[in-house]
Nucleic acid binder design. Structure first.
Lengths: 170, 170
DNA sequence: GGCTTATGAATGAAGG
DNA sequence: CCTTCATTCATAAGCC
């Protein structure tokens, strides 16, 4: 309001919203292509500065939230207003959640199966420069590197072409 | 609110993102092989539980969005590239808070004149009814999906035997 | 003025 | 690879 066009996020004008909604609802343009997005952006630029990504995100959000609305309305299960006693913004605390997701038979699966929680153990300063750099070649690679051991890798310079897509698919 | 399993998707730590970005930007690792993905995953596991698919998806998304960014369709505001190199644990708190996206020359800077709320004098008679009524798939040189297929020649062939060895032995 | 809501922006994950 | 979905974060707007 007092900051009509700061360097913050895009604030669409009513005309821009009207045009976008016409496209979405009337014209049935739910997922414009790249060229369409660029065209729409060009047209909406007349009203106010706007970038392609604004239009891109707008349609994406529109789809997502239309679906969300529809889903919430369909569920006739009375939704308890759980926000009644909770104030102050929910903090997502599962930062250190212990997840052992299962993914079967692909690269997504870790062979060594050394899932364990290595939350706080600032043992040695391994920075990104070291990943492909100096690696101590010990046989600790597959074992538990949690709890104090460091990771060691054989950089075997493997050259066997690309594994096909079939490798990932379940 | 209703977290289905409460441990859904991977939440990368700032260190993990930093390392991945360094691999992608500095080391030029754009499409890691299966072995590289597994190796990177092992490294990043030190910080927090992570699976191969997370790394794999990260690189895939990075490639896709870097390409989209060139068309101004997305922006890329990741963790600011702090390479102070002193402490490995200093966390930057402006996580996604409109940080300066100067990472590697973003092309999405095009601040121009702002028409604010004026709504007269249409430059071209294209007001929402004509946006797609006049689709002629111009889209000049950039796209060209439909017509002449140019040879892309991706040629990844991830065997790093030529010069790519440089980032193995840094 | 805080709190709630609406929505722009971002990104992990997956589909095709 | 390109596109889309799902979820989350961040913030302007709206309401007491």
């Amino acid at each position: 309001m007092h900051c009509k066009q700061c360097n913050t996020r895009w604030l669409p004008t009513t005309d821009q919203i009207r045009i976008l909604k016409e496209l979405y609802d009337d014209k049935g343009v739910k997922s414009p292509t790249v060229e369409q997005v660029q065209r729409i952006t060009l047209q909406l630029k007349w009203y106010r500065q706007i970038e392609n990504k604004n239009v891109f995100y707008w349609f994406q959000n529109q789809r997502a939230r239309e679906k969300l609305k529809k889903k919430n309305l369909t569920s006739d299960v009375q939704v308890p207003k759980q926000r009644s006693g909770l104030v102050g913004g929910s903090i997502n605390l599962n930062f250190g959640s212990t997840s052992s997701a299962d993914v079967g038979g692909s690269i997504m699966e870790q062979r060594g199966e050394d899932h364990q929680e290595v939350k706080t153990l600032p043992l040695f300063p391994m920075h990104s420069e070291d990943i492909f750099g100096n690696m101590k070649t010990t046989s600790d690679g597959g074992g538990g590197h949690g709890g104090g051991s460091y990771i060691s890798l054989e950089l075997s310079l493997s050259c066997e072409g690309k594994a096909g897509k079939s490798f990932w698919s379940r």
